[in-house]
Simulated scan of single mutants.
Amino acid sequence: MIRTGLIGFGLGGTAFHAPLIAAVDGLVLSAVTTSRAEAVHAAYPQTRVATPDDVIADPAIDLVVISTPNATHYPLARAALEAGKHVVIDKPFAGCAEEARALVDLARANGRLAVPFHNRRWDSDFLTVRSLVEAGRLGEVLLYEAHWDRFRPEPSQQWKETPAAGAGQLLDLGPHLIDQALLLFGGPEAVSGDLAVQRAQGVIDDYFSVTLHYGARRVVLASSRMIAAPRPRFGIYGRTGSFVKFGLDPQEAAMRAGASVEDASHGAEDPSLYGVLTLPEGGRETIPSQRGDYRCFYAGIVSAIARGAPPPVAASDAILGLRIIDAARESAAEGRRIALV
């Protein structure tokens, strides 16, 4: 069994990491860091509550999972790797590409894994999009649009809404949108970025639009907290067809509501949200969404640690994603396209 310590028991820890770790064979949730000890004991009676330092120093812990405010990801991951632990790091993997490279170098030097938690690779909608693109149903893709919108006009007091390192919409949702695009199309030639503060009381970027340039193809990734009627989650337009899909993968909502990942319907999308493939001659086909399953990430972690398989997400993918975020910020500040070399 891979003994796992979870640092952080907020939304990420309670709704994602802890239930997934508990559900995957080969992992045991040994310790959790939180100020809400009673919540841990109620949900996981065999799990102890400890400080971050205790989790990192514990020789019985093999894997440390970091689900804390963004600015703490790098120092906590560095300390865990220096202590000889494997690490899983919630997005963003680090605050910038330079920090991410430093973590990867340290992991390699210590013979350990540093793995980004890019669980959205196993979203039902993205699995469906990926299968259509890879099967050539759309032909050459000329325009790919992905939106992740919310309507939250009043800024909260949470750390994500304060002008501190690691805050802002681009670093919050950008890593997932970018990672999905990179899986489909690889690294772009150049990046254009646009950031804005749209809410009256806002102090951090709550809107972004990032364009990835691939020759004639454009990949547009956008998010806003001021959209009450969401745009299509995906719009993919190719030479031989287009696919448009509304709605968001159901796993997060179910897990936040306390549903078990063991439920028979877990990860299955409501048929009313299935996307539509439109062909140039006018044909339309409803495409059933594949079943999403975030457990695949942690099953991949078990295979990587126990059997030496490749990790479920390569750290190099997170580095490239952070390079794109860094370039998008530079582009937005300078008003020009930034080449990636």
Rank of each mutant, 00 (worst) to 15 (best):
M1T: 11
T4G: 05
L6G: 14
L6R: 13
G10E: 02
G13P: 07
P19T: 12
A22W: 04
V24I: 10
V28G: 11
L29T: 15
R36L: 08
A39N: 10
Y44R: 14
T47V: 14
A50D: 14
T51P: 10
A57F: 00
I61K: 04
V64S: 01
T68C: 00
T72R: 10
L81K: 06
V87Q: 03
K91E: 02
P92C: 07
F93H: 04
A97Y: 02
A97G: 05
E99I: 01
E99S: 00
E99Q: 11
E99R: 00
A102M: 04
A107Q: 05
A109I: 02
G111E: 01
G111D: 01
F117L: 09
R120E: 15
W122G: 12
D123Y: 13
S124M: 06
V133H: 08
E134T: 06
A135T: 08
L138D: 10
G139F: 03
E145M: 13
W148Q: 15
D149H: 10
R150V: 11
R152T: 08
R152Y: 04
P153H: 13
Q157Y: 08
G168H: 03
Q169V: 14
L170C: 11
L171P: 03
L171G: 09
L171C: 06
D172M: 14
P175T: 12
P175I: 13
H176D: 09
L177C: 11
L182C: 14
G186N: 03
E189C: 06
S192I: 05
S192K: 03
D194M: 04
V197T: 09
Q198A: 02
S209K: 11
V210N: 11
V210P: 08
T211F: 01
L212Q: 08
G215A: 11
V219Y: 07
A222H: 01
S224R: 04
A228D: 15
R231V: 02
P232D: 01
F234S: 09
G235Q: 05
R239V: 13
T240V: 06
G241D: 09
S242L: 02
S242Y: 00
S242D: 05
G247R: 01
L248I: 10
L248N: 09
D249M: 00
A257P: 04
A257G: 13
G258I: 00
E262H: 14
S265G: 12
D270C: 04
D270K: 03
D270N: 12
P271M: 01
S272L: 05
Y274A: 14
G275Y: 00
V276K: 00
T278N: 02
T278M: 07
G282A: 10
R284Q: 14
R291E: 03
R295M: 13
F297N: 14
A304E: 09
G308H: 12
A309N: 09
L320S: 10
G321R: 03
R323V: 15
I325S: 08
R329N: 04
E330M: 14
S331L: 04
A332I: 05
V341P: 12
